[in-house]
Design a protein around this nucleic acid. Structure first.
Lengths: 331, 331
DNA sequence: CTGTTAGCGCATTCAT
DNA sequence: ATGAATGCGCTAACAG
């Protein structure tokens, strides 16, 4: 009984008008005589007609879909970005096609090149260095990139990681910390910015910085590296973690090792994921405004798609979230 | 300089063959003489030809895209489901078009009906009751639903919430708890199953169950309802939360109120989100296998799309995750 | 206001 | 093994 879905031609026939008229009516491109409008409407209702978006897309070249590529969707930083981006997209009639690269850059290029044919634009979060990204500029679709780009002429949205890290380090210094360590993640493009911010603060005071490097920005890596940090040689009196996940992992393992936070060591992170508030003690962190960044990136991309002019770089100001309990005052 | 992307016709012309030949070659439908194959290959390489997936989709009716609808992508339960589903999809050459309904059921139907035209199949997580879902069966695309369905002839993937809740309650009883409370979320379809599992255990011992109901399955609601639970009348000696988020929120606020966990009240949750392990004390919970459920649903859907026969219901067994520290032994 | 015409880029008969 | 012809469902000029 189920014949193939009714087409615009069926509607045209039933309403005794041309397909062009139906098409224009559907797209609200024009008003028609009440007679015609009524006829079309009842034909559509009668047949249960629904426009075929694929056929439409092929002609218009617009899919009303945006590709969003992130590194790990289970990381709250990225799910918040997705949340913000998706909300804006939805409000403007767009859908989000998700790509989770799972920290595997090898297939990134092919995936994105393929993706670019199915969407009106893309938002990309990548670990690639700028010199590996030249091909992105050749993709024939609007693209917004997360992070700063020195030369590539791509619009970007970035948090000010340098400033955030500087604030964190300054705050620790003010409270008397002197032996500060950084548990970083050098594979990330933002790692160096955070490192730079920390260094700027510490250098001014002539303080050394001990650096540890994680293989992944994860809870598990925070746990794994904890013992080396707190039991290996002179223990730092404060640890800045690349992100909150690592900070949470570190805190858990520190507790297992009998190390008290913040009495034995202060801990801070980045991202302000919701869960940092629910540990004991609650985690001091830098809010990078993940959801807002996602929304901003999507707004920017949709503006480009509409042909509007946009700034090359949109910088989102970070906010220090003081939950004093992971930080002690040092005498 | 940028002419519109090369089409199959350009390739055919350059290789001196027909478009049909190029089409068949690209899709590996057939072998051709070495001469022809070489000519086509070099034409493709020379022009940088890429098949237009939209045009292809319009003809074949297949988009290689799967729609996934979840309630809140920032909830780790759902981001894990997405992770699992996305991985399977990616491995089989499919992309995931995400819908985050943000717990707003009103637009769900329209959104999904529209989505159905752009994808080869859908996986849906919804708060709708079965009687509101009849229209889903009419959607002309394969669909897999999360949860159990009594009558609707839709393939489903479900966790055994009743069993999980029963285990939880039994465990609490074994450890001597008598005044057990449930912090539920009655808007959810699974709430009643969990309630049923708890009741089955408690009824056997003739124990009462105090019930509290949240407006949302969130951290904030766990916090909000905490005081009513621990300070309102006779305090329960154990609280089963609808999910881990609520449990985490509850634990935080309990601590603010000076209530010790588990000395004053034991707390358990559902989902086994990663962050439950990093609170103090660590949270005992029921692992519903979110990622596996996502993967299973996607496998099932792709099987349906391939025309294979699948079971109506795939049940995933839950696992009790004992992190004894949120549970005390009661004398 | 409404209709006619002409494809979009591709896969698919059905010839040869 | 290869090609000519046809049309998927729709929109975009251009006519009238």
């Amino acid at each position: 009984m189920k014949k193939s879905a009714p087409t615009i031609r069926d509607v045209a026939a039933a309403a005794q008008v041309s397909t062009a008229t139906v098409s224009k009516f559907i797209n609200g491109a024009q008003r028609f005589s009440p007679k015609v409008e009524a006829a079309i409407e009842s034909a559509i209702a009668g047949l249960g007609y629904k426009s075929n978006p694929l056929a439409k897309s092929m002609i218009t070249g617009r899919t009303n879909t945006i590709g969003l590529s992130v590194l790990d969707i289970t990381n709250p930083h990225f799910s918040s970005i997705l949340k913000g981006a998706n909300r804006v997209a939805h409000d403007q009639g767009f859908s989000v096609l998700l790509v989770d690269t799972e920290e595997t850059p090898s297939r990134e290029r092919r995936t994105l090149e393929e993706l670019s044919r199915r969407v009106d634009g893309m938002i990309v979060f990548s670990r690639m260095r700028e010199h590996e990204m030249a091909w992105m500029a050749d993709i024939d679709k609007p693209l917004v990139f997360f992070g700063t780009l020195a030369k590539l002429p791509l619009p970007t949205v970035a948090s000010d990681d340098h400033a955030g890290a500087y604030m964190l380090a300054q705050h620790l210094r003010m409270l008397g910390h002197r032996r500060i360590a950084y548990l970083g993640f050098s594979k990330s493009r933002r790692d160096e910015e955070r490192l730079g911010g920390i260094r700027e603060s510490l250098n001014a005071a002539g303080l050394e910085l001990a650096i540890f490097d994680a293989e992944a920005p994860s809870l598990a890596e925070g746990e794994r590296l904890c013992s080396a940090i707190v039991l290996g040689g002179q223990r730092p009196d404060a640890l800045i973690c690349y992100n909150d996940l690592m900070a949470l992992g570190f805190m858990k393992e520190a507790s297992n090792l009998g190390i008290s936070i913040p009495q034995d060591i202060s801990v801070v992170g980045f991202d302000n994921i919701p869960y940092g508030k629910y540990t004991t003690p609650a985690l001091t962190t830098v809010d990078l405004q993940s959801e807002r960044m996602g929304a901003t990136a999507m707004e920017k991309l949709l503006a480009v798609i509409r042909g509007e002019h946009v700034e090359k770089l949109t910088k989102v100001a970070p906010q220090l979230i003081l939950r004093a309990s992971t930080i002690a005052r040092r005498p």
